[in-house]
Design a protein around this nucleic acid. Structure first.
Lengths: 251, 251
DNA sequence: ACAAAAGTGTTTAATTTACACCCATGT
DNA sequence: ACATGGGTGTAAATTAAACACTTTTGT
């Protein structure tokens, strides 16, 4: 904060991070995109959005850079971020509109930049977003109707989605990412949104509850116009244990 | 080749690639390491090895860089390489012996370098190695008795090994990587070496043969002092098909 | 009373596991 | 003849899949 101007010179011109933040609102899977400072309009006149991302600093590691950049652009903090790939085609920053924008914000707008990509999954409806930096706005977009995207961000999102689907089938993903307490119905909806399929309620419950890190709470939903569901939470220690062992599961 | 001197100036000072080449000799899992030009000796007097890796060029993408660098240092070519992670701690190049070595080969030895890591799995006993560039030698090392390593290469190898084990359980990995024809016994030994376990022969065969991309050849082993095994090959098209569908398998 | 999601078991099919002997070849 | 790894089947246990009704609450 205090060395904000100083830090500018400390940016590495060749390495950036980009964050694919998946959001779940209880129903659908979304992605967090930023709207950049100047009006970015593509060849076809459409607005062009981007993933939150920026150059790394020379004195921070990649994970820290991802957290910092995400926070600077969207206000999100303290979320789980996982690196899933790096993208470095020499021409990934060469779209006309992207170049024009880079000229307005970067010391070396023509530099070759490779980007290290991270993803996360959060509650889209419970986190406050505060766009700042060069982000004019930070908004959730439906995953099945994404707008035009700058750079190679469509490719990065494709890749993140593949990773999310793959991991969610073979690891109990989505637990670092859930609110502290949740119902099994919410959990099932989450998996259905990720995998884009419907799951059998009874089979889902049986399988998911076999994982010993899911612990039932006494607390139940209140004020819902149907039988109130029990809340669950998950035991981080048990979960770590589970993760370190080999296992897979099928939903 | 012809623009070798010219290309030097074209190197990006901040981004490198490193290759973790797993080798299988029919028995054990190995890793390919290079021995660098000057004698590299750690604090304890031990020789210090490194993964084949170097800076990328500004005009090539990351995959090409990995193939090029691997070829320049070890002579390997036309192998399957998969990106599995990027490593970028600010202090990853700050060991004394590493710094000394970097000063002898790099224009900007103190530059922050993040590295994009790739892995592969090849036949350790059938490929010719030709060390060149700053590699004095390129040698296979047993995976369970690795020597001292420069930089953060021990961390990179750990990570690669985890990835290899994970992927090999959930995807039919190790097929791009095998010789054109192989016996099921060899395939089983490969999986046993990767997973570091013993597998039941009959169960292994049943499961692996259910994968339609494994095709039996008429050809059999000759000159072996036991019943000659049938050779198999794998159908790349079927395999792609298989990979694009969701699936997992347990050995 | 009704709408809406929670919660709960059983049967059948498919998959996984454990396990032992004969075969073809070179020496 | 013997040593070596190749090749094969089956029974029992486990896991996955399909499927429908009762419960609790708010309106």
């Amino acid at each position: 904060m205090s060395d904000n101007t100083l830090s500018k010179s400390n940016l590495n011109p060749n390495v950036s991070v980009d964050c694919v933040i998946f959001g779940f609102d209880g129903e659908k899977l979304k992605i967090l995109l930023i709207d950049r400072e100047q009006v970015m309009v593509g060849d076809d006149g459409e607005k062009v959005y981007a993933l939150p991302g920026n150059l790394i600093r020379n004195d921070e590691n990649l994970d820290s850079a991802a957290h910092r950049v995400l926070n600077e652009l969207t206000g999100l903090h303290d979320i789980f971020l996982e690196q899933f790939g790096s993208f470095g085609d020499p021409d990934r920053l060469t779209k006309k509109t992207d170049l024009a924008w880079l000229k307005s914000i970067r010391a070396q707008p023509d530099a070759r930049v490779i980007t290290v990509a991270y993803y996360s999954l959060v509650r889209a409806d419970q986190l406050e977003l505060h766009a700042s930096g060069f982000a004019k706005d930070a908004l959730w977009h439906d995953i099945d109707k994404l707008p035009s995207l700058g750079f190679d961000h469509d490719k990065i999102i494709d890749s993140a989605l593949k990773e999310l689907r793959f991991k969610s089938k073979y690891q109990p993903l989505g637990f670092e990412l859930l609110p502290e307490k949740f119902t099994l119905g919410q959990l099932q909806k989450l998996y259905e949104a990720i995998l884009n399929t419907e799951l059998d309620k009874r089979n889902f419950r049986r399988k998911i509850l076999k994982m010993s890190f899911l612990v039932p709470l006494q607390e139940k939903q209140i004020g819902v116009p149907h039988k109130p569901a029990r809340y669950y939470t998950f035991d981080k220690d048990m979960y770590q244990n589970y993760k370190s062992n080999d296992f897979y599961f099928t939903l």
